[in-house]
Write a protein that binds this DNA or RNA. Structure first.
Length: 586
DNA sequence: GCCGTTTTCGGCCCGACTGTTTTCAGTCG
């Protein structure tokens, strides 16, 4: 059923794309209507297939006409209007809009005047210098298009994973901070919203002297090509194909600018509508009176939100997924502060083949972070190279017990292990050996390409095992590299409730697993999560800073995350988890 | 095409930069 929702999303995407061409502008009201409907469907919960036409119109942005098309699609598999649009706008023509610099107007003109209906035809026309002859086009446009097509061929519109983008953004902001002209610098855009992948990197700088800053970027060693070079805005691409947009504003405009360049388009539109309702104007420089231009607020995001009758909304929530409405009635999710995490439950030491810090260092580092409980979870033996044999684990247990004696009451050490879920859902060692641990998580590390039914079955089997407290990185994805295993998420969430098996929120940037989508789907359910660092080195304990952002983005309630609980409550719960299973299976 | 404590029509967010213009349209974010 989740697939049907995905199909409807595809349908609406195509409607939007073709309507953009048909209307001649991405700002056309019809186009925006489809865009709104698209978001309404994306954020809905429940089974779209069983929804009536009138139920569909209750979704945000979905009116009578779109509801009818969705029903038409769900029952017949086709939509009359879409078929007509497809006929009018063949795939080759649609493909042309992928070229940066070619919008609907230009595509229509090329088609009408030169009969260009495919990328090949466009290349040919460019080679023959046919395009510069058209009114409104010229030699420079030809060159720009040629270059854009080249780039498209080299991997095109690939998005960059957060694991790659974030360090780069931090580096650039740090470098900007050293420039004498820079007063403040902050990365914004989808990266600040903590999206898993980003299309481009937006950086906002406060300065009274933009020219040297823009020059700094244009001449930066990472830069491959300059797309735009002005005093207020400069855009470049890096050698790896990531676009960077740098905006410079005055210091007193910084809040307005970071607000403007952080919110999703839809979030910003809602804010501007609120401004309009009050007779004001909101742009990247200020919130000001529409006539006369007297500034209401501009220096900080807080002041602007406040003037619009809203509390400051955490950046990761600014998607127009209901956060503005929730902010209004005072029910925004609160999020989790780092010091509200009382323990880490997925940590490796150098006993695991890929661990790099000693047990002593890990315990010390956890203590420094104020934790009152910590689970040491080496890889179990079935994982080649990294896995640990029984004897070594028993030795470690003795060491941990000795350390516990010295630690006294300051911190509780749990001896755990990260089990491997094989293709059939079987786990390492034997049942008795597994049950002797204080804490077991079970994770998929192999066989990522099995069909959905088998993947789901292996996870469900592991969840039902009496030794298992938690499933680690459920989908086993690495963002931007490997898609997650295919799963029936509803079946997994059902099992999590039934077996009281926790799901991990793995804070590592390449993983961020479970995903925001799964977190949101679990929101109305009684599922317990545990946030972990999956640290293989003491420094990686700090990955929790990403986990809390990710969890907030998924609207996860603090009390659903078990390691925000007190030590006594957590330990009691983890024991209870297993006792229940033992009883249920006896 | 959607929507409504200014409802059933008439609105619907805003600005920078570029290229080709000679005052602005198109594209992008």
């Amino acid at each position: 059923m989740a697939d049907r929702k995905a199909e409807v999303i595809d349908l609406l995407r195509e409607m939007r794309e073709l309507t953009t061409l048909d209307e001649g502008s991405p700002q056309a009201f019809r186009v925006r209507a489809y865009e709104n409907a698209l978001r309404g469907v994306e954020t809905m919960t429940g089974d779209i297939e069983t929804m009536s036409e009138s139920a569909l119109t209750k979704l945000d942005g979905v009116g009578k006409s779109t509801a009818k098309k969705i029903r038409e699609y769900l029952t017949s598999g086709r939509v009359e209007k879409l078929e007509k649009l497809r006929e009018k706008w063949p795939p080759g023509v649609v493909e042309l809009t992928q070229v940066p610099g070619l919008g609907p107007k230009a595509v229509t003109k090329l088609r009408k005047e030169l009969g260009i209906e495919s990328m090949a035809a466009l290349r040919e026309a460019l080679a023959g210098q046919k395009i510069r002859a058209l009114a409104g086009f010229g030699e420079k446009t030809e060159k720009k298009l040629l270059k854009a097509i080249e780039r498209l061929g080299l991997g095109g519109d690939k998005r960059t994973s957060i694991a790659k983008a974030l360090p780069l953004a931090q580096r650039l902001v740090a470098e900007l901070d050293t420039l004498p002209q820079v007063q403040r610098a902050r990365y914004c855009g989808s990266l600040r919203r903590f999206r898993e992948t980003i299309g481009d990197l937006d950086i906002v700088v406060a300065s009274e002297d933009a020219k040297p800053i823009m020059r700094w970027l244009v001449e930066h060693a990472l830069v491959d090509d300059v797309l735009v070079h002005g005093d207020k805005k400069t855009s470049v691409t890096t050698r790896k194909g990531l676009q960077i947009d740098l905006r410079v504003v005055a210091a007193h405009q910084f809040g307005a600018a970071t607000l403007y360049f952080t919110g999703s388009k839809a979030h910003n539109i809602k804010l501007r509508q609120r401004a309009m309702d009050r007779g004001w104007l909101l742009n990247e420089y200020a919130l000001e009176e529409a006539d006369g231009g007297k500034v209401i607020a501009s220096e900080t995001e807080e002041e602007i939100y406040e003037a619009l009758g809203l509390p400051w909304i955490p950046e990761v929530l600014r998607e127009d997924n209901g956060e503005i409405e929730r902010a209004l009635d005072g029910t925004l999710p609160g999020g989790i502060a780092l010091d509200e995490l009382n323990g880490d439950l997925h940590v490796h030491t150098d006993l695991s083949g890929d661990g790099r810090s000693s047990l002593e260092d890990m315990v010390e580092a956890a203590k420094e972070r104020g934790y009152t409980f910590l689970a040491i979870t080496e890889h179990a033996e079935d994982l080649p190279l990294q896995g640990v044999k029984r004897d070594a684990l028993l030795e470690q247990r003795a060491r941990i017990q000795a350390m516990q004696g010295k630690l006294g009451d300051t911190m509780t050490l749990l001896h755990g292990v990260e089990l491997n879920i094989d293709g059939d859902g079987n786990l390492d060692y034997d049942a008795d050996f597994r049950r002797a641990f204080d804490w077991c998580l079970a994770s998929v590390h192999t066989q990522f390409d099995l069909p959905k039914e088998r993947q789901t079955a292996r996870i469900l089997k592991a969840m039902a095992d009496p030794s298992v407290n938690m499933i680690g990185h459920l989908t086993a994805r690495t963002i931007g590299k490997r898609p997650g295993i295919e799963l029936d998420i509803d079946a997994v969430l059902d099992a999590a409730e039934k077996h009281r098996c926790a799901l991990e929120i793995n804070s590592g940037l390449p993983r961020l697993d479970v995903s925001v989508d799964i977190l949101r789907r679990a929101r109305e359910r009684d599922v317990t999560f545990v946030m972990t660092s999956d640290a293989h080195h003491t420094s990686e304990l700090d990955r929790m800073q990403w986990g809390v952002q990710h969890a907030l983005r998924g609207w996860t309630r603090k009390d659903r995350v078990a390691n925000t609980w007190t030590r006594d409550r957590f330990v009691a719960w983890s024991r209870e988890q297993r006792r229940n299973e033992a009883g249920a299976n006896a």
